[in-house]
């Protein structure tokens, strides 16, 4: 597979791979939540760069798009959940160091053993002219069920997180018997309701 790629692409993949691992390590080294968040984003952007070097433009751009949005939402949730999102107070980014080191090493071993021992299928067809179209056909065809389940799962998680973060439910907003016409909110929204 590597033989399809130019020397430049291989060099880019290698350099970005190192960068992504380095940025991943930085997540646990820096001492503020904001820096950790953006180190993680840098790591994901390096992965997007690798996909771009492999000529998978759609996957690359979508990775950059989704991961950036994810980090931004994480910043919002950071405020909602953490008592102290460590403004510019130094704060350690490592908790339960021993347990997580064991889990991390275990996952690394499993993945490496898997990568080197699995009999990966060889590609029989030639490279598609348009990888975006091929991806779209796969997602909207044979893999649609998986994508839908994952999508709904993620959405449910976001909703659940928000519900857990707020202490006000619909009974607080619409009254004990839910009959109030307008919700009783500290700040009204922009719609007349």
């Amino acid at each position: 597979m590597l033989s399809d790629l130019s020397g430049w692409a291989i060099a880019a993949v290698a350099a970005l791979g190192v960068l992504s691992v380095a940025a991943g390590v930085a997540v646990f080294v820096v001492d503020s939540m904001a820096r950790a968040t953006f180190a993680l984003l840098a790591s994901f952007l390096a992965v997007a760069g690798i996909l771009l070097a492999l000529d998978l433009v759609y996957l690359a751009v979508v990775t950059a798009l989704m991961m950036t949005i994810e980090m931004a939402i994480m910043a919002v949730f950071m405020i909602m959940f953490m008592m102290n999102p460590a403004g510019l107070m130094p704060m350690t980014m490592v908790h339960n160091a021993k347990g997580s080191a064991v889990t991390g090493a275990g996952a690394f071993v499993v993945l490496v053993v898997g990568i080197w021992t699995i009999d990966w299928p060889t590609r029989d067809a030639s490279r598609p002219a348009d990888s975006t179209r091929q991806l779209g056909e796969a997602i909207m065809g044979s893999h649609m069920l998986v994508m839908l389940v994952i999508g709904i799962g993620l959405f449910t998680t976001i909703l659940a997180g928000t519900v857990l973060a707020t202490s006000r439910g619909r009974y607080d907003r619409f009254g004990a018997d839910l009959t109030a016409k307008r919700p009783d909110d500290p700040v009204p929204g922009g719609l007349p309701r």
Binding site: M83, G87, P90, T166, R168
Partner: peptide, 20 residues
Amino acid sequence: MAGLAMASTGPDRDGLELDV
């Protein structure tokens, strides 16, 4: 990085514990 001490947290209007 220089640290600036924040005041302690307190319950806010929306029922969250936020820095004051």
